[in-house]
């Protein structure tokens, strides 16, 4: 999850945030890390770019991007298998 936190910080240009500042279960939006709707789109780009995962529908985003842990779980479950 440390790698994922680093990727989130880089993708969203969160210059003042360190990976250890983000709790595994801390909400990413509103009251947590304070991300906004554009950040949500950037997280979708991150999944596509780094993990080759496309969100099936936008509705999924709300549960997938709840926290770093939910993102990590989604990535583990959906990452294309390499042979």
């Amino acid at each position: 999850m440390a790698d994922l936190k680093r990727q989130i910080i880089e993708q969203l240009n969160l210059k003042d945030v360190k990976p250890e500042d983000i709790g595994d279960d801390q909400p990413l939006f509103v009251e947590g890390l304070g991300l906004d709707s554009i950040d949500a789109l950037e997280l979708i780009v991150l999944l596509q770019q780094e993990y080759k995962i496309k969100l099936a529908n936008a509705e999924e985003g709300q549960s997938v991007f709840r926290s770093v842990r939910t993102m990590a779980q989604y990535i583990t479950e959906h990452q294309p298998k390499t042979i």
Binding site: L12, N13, I38, D39, L41, E42, V45, Q48, Q49
Partner: peptide, 10 residues
Amino acid sequence: KNIPSPAQFV
């Protein structure tokens, strides 16, 4: 050229 960046688009 790769994946368009929403954050840059705005």
